[in-house]
Design a protein around this nucleic acid. Sequence first.
DNA 1: TCACAATGTCACTATTTGGTGACATTGTGA
DNA 2: TCACAATGTCACCAAATAGTGACATTGTGA
Lengths: 211, 211
Amino acid sequence: MRNSEETRKKLIRAAKELLAKKGFQKIGINSIARKAGVDKVLIYRYFGGLQELLREMAKTSDFWPTLEEMAGGTSEEIKSMDIRKLSSTILKGRIRELRKRPATQEILRWELMERNELTDELHFERESQGDELNNLVPFGTENINGVDIPAVTALIISGITYLILRSKTADTFNGIDLHSESGWKRIEGAIDIMIDIFFNQILEKSDSEEQ
Amino acid sequence: MRNSEETRKKLIRAAKELLAKKGFQKIGINSIARKAGVDKVLIYRYFGGLQELLREMAKTSDFWPTLEEMAGGTSEEIKSMDIRKLSSTILKGRIRELRKRPATQEILRWELMERNELTDELHFERESQGDELNNLVPFGTENINGVDIPAVTALIISGITYLILRSKTADTFNGIDLHSESGWKRIEGAIDIMIDIFFNQILEKSDSEEQ
DNA sequence: TCACAATGTCACTATTTGGTGACATTGTGA
DNA sequence: TCACAATGTCACCAAATAGTGACATTGTGA
């Protein structure tokens, strides 16, 4: 029973569960300690405070999806994909991985609400673990034939993120079922089409310019 | 000084300002009454409670953008536009109108966080005032040539919404400046390109099928 | 004039929150 | 064996919250 390491883990686990279930608004010293069945003073003693506890939590291995998880393969396999396939795979993978991480979603919600030391801390932790936008879509970061690639990328990633976050509080969006696999297949289909015609356009254009 | 109607307005104004400035987390009976310089018991007496006060607030004329505001013209002018131009205009208009309504943004954030009687109420009020997704993009709601129009629409609208909400707590997204006009011009450019190649694709396809 | 309802003020409760100091219990190394 | 640090429990504090009952003031219609 007297095991500080175990108590630390209990607190982190409780924080994560509480975050996933009730959202960041319900996260607090009192609620976490209550959920963990532990006195709240131990949060201060072992972590220093709420901020440090959550920082530890965000370092948990399965908290942020890695590039490999999103792509669903090793980095060698990733490198061997052509860019069109890779874009599609990573974007779909991001949907898949984010959808099964309610606590992670909650951090994204939090970042949308307020900016403070805590959210900065958690944002930093995310970037450290490879969940950077640069990795998400391998379109590159420059203009191709006058097309603003980062802007298009931003719009697609944002769209994905919003729909995932929205699924917590809405059943449908524009008629698309956000709680069924078929609904998400429709989103994936839209992404595929966009990627497809997008590359067609770029290649077509550069072809005609080469002639 | 003794004017219940004026007091009601003061409370609604205070709620709106507080929402815009501090976000929905700071909205409460005490804070609103304090800001309005009025006793909190009057909120109960005049509105019944916080919920009813906010419902009234959401009925304010300038709270939700109308279709005409987004399109930037009368409904006759809207009807006379071709679909490509109309899509582009409305989407850009939505960005413009939503960007200058911080209190409205806050409701969207709220809807993203939790679902309760309050958010349902506010959501309903929004739909009543014409801010329905069906109006936002006149693409129609069916499949064209096997392309899932509602899904593509959902992705674009979601992307716009997320980027606007994100601008509260982030300076940039994927390198795009969310606080400068030039940054939003880039987003608009991305939308235009997507609309453009999207319609090209659809028309091209139906052309080739007609042959 | 004056009764009375409308309007507004104040004081209080109960609950929750973050935070701290004092104490009890346990294990372990000297 | 025993001292002592590590671990854990408990009781408190100040502040903020939602909500309510009692009271004071004002205007107005009979």
